[in-house]
Design a protein around this nucleic acid. Structure first.
Lengths: 131, 131
DNA sequence: CTAATATCAGTAATGATTACTGATTTGGAG
DNA sequence: CTCCAAATCAGTAATCATTACTGATATTAG
């Protein structure tokens, strides 16, 4: 018996699964508090880390200084809007060949890569919105 | 007159240019202190940020929680060893086509991508070193 | 040379995340 | 069903990287 069930952890995972954006720990905290008003931020962090270690969710580093979490663990990529900060999924063709390209002139074992894309999202890119 | 010369900033840049690894602010601080024993960590951070904003160096987010800095601003990629933590340059063929691939089914403007590779570096991968 | 101001050293503050502690919850054994 | 060992919790303190603030110093145009 190593890992015991906990209502809080279940609710954290449920919340993450209900969202297609990629919330930060703080956003998870704010929302789970509606179900468990006494939950502590430490509990949220501990369980997010635990779920990530178990492979049930993914922790994303997107260069904005805060970790984001994603309940979709299938391989896919992310886009970060430079204007509004939104993080969205990119369902795109496989680009794992870049690992082979990277390995061509490298003396070592390349096991994988971290990639995300940035730019202006569809919402922020609306034409003629102002003035 | 907006930006004035400073010996400290010059030394920070000199130090960065002398290294082909990708030091953190703290490593820069430790080393520049040999020339300027009174320099403060805040000065190092302020100047690294200033140099990065001026485009003279690049700030790297490599998912390890600390920022790394690189005096080589030409486009290239990085490899992070999962074992020893070393960061090294990868001189490889262009992979900018992944931006086009990502943009195919995306409603928005993709301006670029952040990519780095991870695995076991040549040094850590030495065969039969122990036992 | 001098004055205006960018920069500095030193230190305090911030923000995200982790660690600690005594109380509570969970779940297998009897 | 009850009991207890261990996992988890809430609350709080600590950590770590980075940024902001302040009075003193260095730089540079005129």
């Amino acid at each position: 018996m190593a890992i015991k069930y906990s209502r809080q952890r279940q609710e954290i995972k449920n919340f993450l699964m209900s969202r297609k954006d990629h919330p930060t720990a703080d956003v998870v905290y704010m929302n789970v508090r509606q179900q468990y008003p006494n939950i502590s931020l430490g509990t949220v962090y501990r369980n997010l880390t635990l779920l990530a270690d178990m492979g049930e969710i993914t922790r994303l580093h997107l260069g904005d200084g805060v970790d984001h979490f994603d309940a979709d663990t299938s391989p896919h990529y992310h886009f970060v809007c430079s204007k509004c900060g939104q993080v969205m999924d990119l369902h795109m063709n496989n680009i794992d060949s870049i690992v082979d390209i990277a390995g061509m002139n490298f003396n070592g074992e390349i096991q994988g890569h971290i990639t995300y894309f940035y730019g202006i999202c569809g919402n922020c890119n609306e034409p003629d919105d102002e003035h």
